[in-house]
Design a protein around this nucleic acid. Structure first.
Length: 846
RNA sequence: GCCGGUGUGGCGAAAUGGCAGACGCAACGGACUUAAAAUCCGUUGGUGCAAAACACCAUGCGGGUUCGAGUCCCGCCACCGGCACCA
């Protein structure tokens, strides 16, 4: 026999979920809609939408989603127009991998997974406006992803105006040189196992992030996005955002701005440019290093060294990135036989190649100053190259390997200058002599934007006579061809190439066969939510302006998600948004005003949840045993939102018991086993203490919700309930307040109790979730009497209750007259007395 | 190596520089029950004391500022996360 539930959550939770859906209780009207109320301010609260995996929803998702849901429900009660949408980041590798294995179309798998996720989310009672649901795989959606790509393709970054403009304003000879979306033939991360190219970000320690397969470098023709043009703005414009400082720092570091100089070194085959952050050490350069892939290597290498150089290049290129990092401890390299001239000293410097110089950063060539650079020093030691001191450290310590600021020595006209001045002077000299210039360099590289996959957005691009051109907007969306073989071709050619009919656009034109990466769809989905049905624009401009523009740099008021997207997703989305802003399509320069990262939820064993450890908690199981409200409440009660914390089923039981206590606070079981409104309730006034608890609770929960401190808000509700469970008679007003406060946290229970109480008492009209948030009265919070702590030398000694208005001098006198205080201070001299009004009196004695 | 975060009872955690441990879990004692579960009431940081009163010790470690430090400053240690030859 199944045990009787402490409260009938399994009956009323689905009922309320259904009712919310049926009545569109959380539909957010757009400007122009009949029920739109322009007098209400907007609040846009967004979750990072999930990839609908086959695994279903994870308790980690539920944490962030519950936090935003509480805030969304709270803001509605505070009279805001709340936009709280959900959708699916549904393109992606797993569905395609599954399709490859089974031959089933990824659309099927995706559809099934989406349906499961939707059911799960609705089963938790999230107050999403489901009429705004979107999927990145929907042609009605990716039409606009493709459209945005065409915007990128059709514009360039004008350094003079510091923003993107239509490519038609470009005065240069070849617009293809400057398009924000461009083609490049370059070494990429080729993963033979996946049959695709990966972005740097998708490669972890030389292996694919998905699947963990080996990755090698291989040159290929790729679509790139010129995100580097925005590097400076992406750093600067972090300023106005309410993001955790640590995340801003992560982005700044990722972009990696460094100031220095470009210096030209002459060689027999022409000048070689290097980037350095320490131009002041130019006199200390004793050799030069080119990246093994540097284009000049071939021409510069002398006959004698040709073989050794070729061998080294081969060795390096066959190394996977993994090996390359693994062997990083030992410096390797080969002399090219060539020499370069130091522009400032005229010294002849041997030119080497070594894999510690990366082709992807700076110019792919460096001047080596072994005395003041650890890597160069190590290399010089290995190959016995000269080391010349050019910086004198200010304190004690060896100059060899000293990389800090000091004073220039052995540096001709720089001698005696502190490092910052020496930098300025040498840059001026370089510019004057035409052999260099000040330069800012970024670690950030352009975004490799194409993938050799089926399940992604096709590029709206045609190829004709070896040239690319944009597909006309009227031909969007460009949908993938129907296929039943999704296997990679293995040659690096994308699977779409197999759809010969589709590829053939006309007699002379062929379609691009690459697809876009998964990031594309998630780069702008928050915009689509503003107006998801729009067929004429990615979002109507009135709707976009209303939901995104509140006079702040960022549009979304609160964006919650995991730290794993701290850099890439957030950087890419910011980049796209800025381009759209520059082109006049959106009204704010930044997408997300406030960002919060929820912490990771660990298994009960304190380890990361994983199938192999068998410590995964499935939200469905929690719901069937304890209900959705208990799941929500527990996830919030565990601890601070942003902290990593372990799951505890005992903890779930704890909040479940609390919810049962709330239920029994309102209802008692009659002879027939029915729940009836407790007879203890009556329309009576609060006692003084009750009133204080009620108003303290409203105040604390209001503040805690605003601060996203949900754990302490819940603790306060528990205090509230503890106060009233024993009360007799119970003022019914207590429940009118409590249920409204509880409603964002445990909406089903609040709704159910609200409805039932409405049959017995007045003042329970409508839905609990549609009530106004309660106000508190500051006057009722304070007692006339206040307990004062008496201390001697900072140690607690006694407590006395005094009237609130007592003056400092009276308090001091009272403390000195106190018996316990006198015991402690007798025979000692009172040095001073510190009085903190309403708190304590501290008597300092010697 | 560099950057960031976190260290408080048996556990999850609270605490505008002002009584450390709110709230919850676990444990223990009691009530109800034929019994159990559920529920309700109570106790619960450590040491000393038979116990109470009380005293002392307690917020990773060591210093400092302050009448007073979990909180501020300096120096360490441990764990977690990110980056990693970025010139």
């Amino acid at each position: 026999m199944s045990q009787r539930k402490p409260f009938p959550f399994s009956e009323f939770e689905p009922r309320w979920q259904q009712q919310w859906l049926d009545t569109g209780a959380f539909r957010a009207p757009n400007p122009g809609d009949a029920d739109f109320d322009a007098s209400k301010p907007k609040f846009y609260v967004l979750d990072m939408f999930p990839y609908p995996s086959g695994e279903g929803l994870h308790v980690g998702h539920v944490e962030g989603y519950t936090a935003t849901d509480i805030l969304a429900r709270y803001k509605r009660m505070r009279g805001f127009n709340v936009l709280h949408p959900m959708g699916w980041d549904a393109f992606g590798l797993p569905a395609e991998q599954f399709a490859i294995k089974t031959g089933r179309h990824p659309r099927e798998t995706t559809g099934r997974n989406v349906a499961r996720f939707r059911t799960q989310l609705q089963g938790i009672g999230f107050s999403y406006d489901w009429s705004r649901e979107i999927s990145t795989t929907d042609p009605g959606y990716f039409k606009w992803t493709q459209w945005i790509f065409l915007q990128l393709y059709g514009s360039w970054f004008n350094p003079a105006t510091n923003k993107a403009e239509s490519i038609s304003t470009y005065a240069g000879a070849n617009p293809d040189d400057v398009r924000l979306a461009y083609i490049a033939d370059r070494p990429v991360n080729w993963c033979p196992e996946l049959g695709t190219v990966l972005a740097n970000e998708e490669v972890v320690e030389g292996r694919s992030e998905v699947g963990g397969f080996a990755v090698e470098r291989r040159p290929m023709r790729q679509w790139m996005l010129r995100i580097t043009d925005y590097a400076q703005r992406l750093i600067e414009e972090l300023e106005g955002l309410d993001w955790p400082e640590s995340i801003k720092l992560l982005q700044r570091n990722w972009i990696g701005r460094s100031e220095g100089a470009m210096v030209k070194f002459e060689t027999e085959v022409g000048p070689v440019e290097v980037f350095t952050t320490r131009p002041d050490t130019l006199f200390g350069a004793t050799y030069m290093v080119l990246a093994p892939e540097h284009p000049l290597v071939e021409s510069i290498t002398t006959g004698e060294q040709a073989q050794a150089v070729a061998d080294y290049q081969k060795k390096v290129s066959s190394k996977s990135d993994l090996d390359r990092t693994d062997l990083a401890k030992e410096k390797t390299g080969v002399f090219t036989g060539a020499f370069a001239t130091n522009p400032v000293s005229g010294a002849k410097l041997p030119v080497w190649i070594a894999d510690y110089v990366l082709m992807g950063y700076g110019t792919g060539a460096i001047m080596a100053v072994p005395a003041h650079d650890e890597r160069d020093f190590e290399f010089a030691q290995t190959f016995d190259l000269p080391v010349i001191q050019v910086v004198q450290p200010s304190g004690e310590g060896d100059w060899r390997g000293f990389v800090g600021d000091g004073v220039a020595v052995n540096s001709g006209f720089l001698d005696g200058l502190p490092t910052p001045e020496a930098k300025k002077k040498i840059i001026a000299w370089l510019e004057e002599h035409g052999v260099g210039a000040g330069r800012v360099n970024y670690k950030l590289r352009d975004w490799l934007f194409s993938r050799q996959r089926y399940w992604g957005e096709p590029f709206p691009i045609l190829w004709e006579d070896g040239r690319h051109r944009a597909l006309d907007e009227s031909e969007l969306p460009l949908v993938q061809p129907e296929m039943d073989d999704f296997k990679p071709t293995g040659t690096g050619e994308p699977p779409l190439a197999k759809a010969v009919e589709w590829v053939r656009y006309s007699e002379t034109a062929r379609r691009e066969t690459n697809t876009m990466p998964q990031w594309a769809g998630s780069c702008w989905y928050y915009l689509r939510f503003c107006d998801p049905e729009n067929t004429a624009r990615f979002a109507g401009s009135e709707a976009e302006k209303f939901w995104m523009d509140a006079g702040k740099p960022g549009g979304v008021d609160l964006y919650v998600g995991g730290t794993e997207h701290a850099v890439l997703h957030l950087l890419y989305a910011r980049f796209w948004h800025k381009v759209l802003f520059d082109l006049g399509h959106v009204s704010t320069p930044e997408p997300f005003q406030r960002l919060v990262n929820q912490g990771m939820i660990l298994g009960g064993d304190g380890q990361k949840m994983s199938k192999s450890r068998g410590n995964v908690v499935n939200p469905d199981d929690v719901i069937s045993e304890y209900g959705a409200d208990a799941l929500r409440l527990y996830e919030m009660f565990m601890g601070p939102l942003e902290q990593t914390k372990p799951w505890s089923m005992k903890g779930v039981e704890g909040v479940f018991r609390f919810l049962a206590r709330v239920w029994r606070l309102g209802f008692e079981e009659n002879q027939e086993g029915e729940w009836i409104v407790s007879s203890a309730f009556a329309e009576v006034e609060f006692t003084g203490k009750q009133a204080r608890v009620v108003h303290e609770t409203i105040k604390k929960i209001t503040k805690d919700v605003e601060d996203l401190s949900f754990n302490t808000a819940i603790a306060q509700m528990m205090i509230f309930v503890n106060e009233f469970t024993t009360a007799e008679p119970r003022p019914i007003e207590a429940l009118r307040v409590l249920l409204r406060l509880l409603s964002p946290f445990a909406p089903h229970l609040a709704e159910e109790m609200w409805e039932r109480l409405g049959k017995a008492f007045a003042g329970f009209d409508g839905l609990a979730s549609q009530q106004a948030w309660p106000d508190y009265d500051e006057k009722l919070l304070v007692d006339d009497e206040v307990e004062i702590l008496l201390q001697v030398n900072g140690k607690p000694c006694d407590r006395v209750t005094v009237s609130k208005g007592m003056s400092d001098s009276d308090l001091e006198a009272l403390a000195l007259a106190n018996e316990k205080v006198r015991e402690k201070i007798e025979n000692k001299a009172v040095v001073k007395v510190i009085v903190v009004r309403g708190k304590l009196v501290n008597v300092v004695v010697k």
